[in-house]
Simulated assay, not measured.
Amino acid sequence: METQMSKPRIGVIIGTTRKARFADKPAQWFMEQVADHAELDFELVDLRDFDLPMFDEVASNAWLPSEDPHAVRWQEKVKSFDGYVFVTAEYNHSISGSLKNALDQDYTGWARKPMAAVAYGGVGGARALEHLRTISVELQMVPLRNAVHIGGSDFYKVWSGGENAPMSEIEGHLQAALSAMLDELVWWTKATKAAREA
């Protein structure tokens, strides 16, 4: 009987928690695009499902184990992946408070793994993603160069506050960026996983 190596696991993290969020639409679109990916397994992770408190531990879990059970459950989830794709909104030129808090709740789980992003907003979530990349460097992640940006007229076409059209109406504009990001994610996931396991 032939044994098949399990594919590296990528967490697709929805980075906002508010009731009126747009994130579900691009997140579902992304999951459809990677449903049968040949080299990576993708799992959708919703911050709403973790009920994280505002970070209030004595120290980062790099120094002391966290005490809050919600934080510990989140850390176990983060640790289970070999890389990440963040679906991120842009709030006032940065990421959401809920995503920053989720990042702060762990240190060790993120380290030495790649991070990619699907970002959205008026300028494609570019400013939020630049902040996210600098945060990820401090958490010892490998931020990828390529990302999917949904901005400008494409954003207003599919946004619930705009035309609310299906993602299929703009996906032709996103495919080149998606393909480049996934190629890069495969390379860095394999490289960092091999290095961590060596």
Rank of each mutant, 00 (worst) to 15 (best):
1 M>D: 15
3 T>K: 09
4 Q>D: 10
7 K>T: 08
9 R>I: 05
10 I>G: 12
11 G>W: 00
11 G>K: 00
17 T>C: 07
19 K>H: 06
20 A>S: 14
20 A>K: 13
21 R>G: 06
23 A>F: 02
25 K>R: 14
28 Q>P: 00
29 W>Q: 04
34 V>G: 02
34 V>M: 08
34 V>N: 02
35 A>P: 11
37 H>M: 06
37 H>T: 02
39 E>P: 11
44 L>M: 14
46 D>F: 14
55 F>T: 04
55 F>M: 14
55 F>S: 05
57 E>Q: 12
58 V>D: 10
59 A>G: 11
61 N>E: 10
70 H>F: 03
70 H>I: 02
70 H>E: 09
71 A>N: 13
71 A>I: 15
72 V>L: 05
74 W>L: 01
74 W>V: 03
76 E>W: 05
80 S>H: 05
81 F>Q: 00
82 D>L: 01
83 G>W: 03
85 V>K: 00
90 E>R: 05
93 H>G: 06
98 S>T: 15
99 L>T: 04
101 N>R: 03
105 Q>R: 13
106 D>Y: 00
106 D>C: 09
107 Y>F: 12
111 A>W: 01
118 V>F: 03
122 G>A: 13
122 G>P: 14
124 G>Q: 02
124 G>C: 09
124 G>H: 00
126 A>N: 09
127 R>I: 07
129 L>K: 01
130 E>W: 09
131 H>E: 08
132 L>Q: 00
133 R>V: 11
135 I>D: 06
135 I>R: 00
140 Q>H: 15
141 M>R: 05
141 M>P: 13
142 V>K: 04
142 V>Y: 04
143 P>K: 05
143 P>L: 02
144 L>W: 05
146 N>I: 04
146 N>A: 08
150 I>Q: 06
152 G>L: 11
157 K>V: 03
160 S>L: 04
163 E>Y: 06
170 I>G: 01
178 L>K: 11
185 L>P: 06
188 W>G: 11
188 W>I: 15
189 T>G: 09
192 T>K: 04
193 K>L: 13
196 R>I: 13
197 E>K: 14
198 A>K: 12
198 A>C: 01
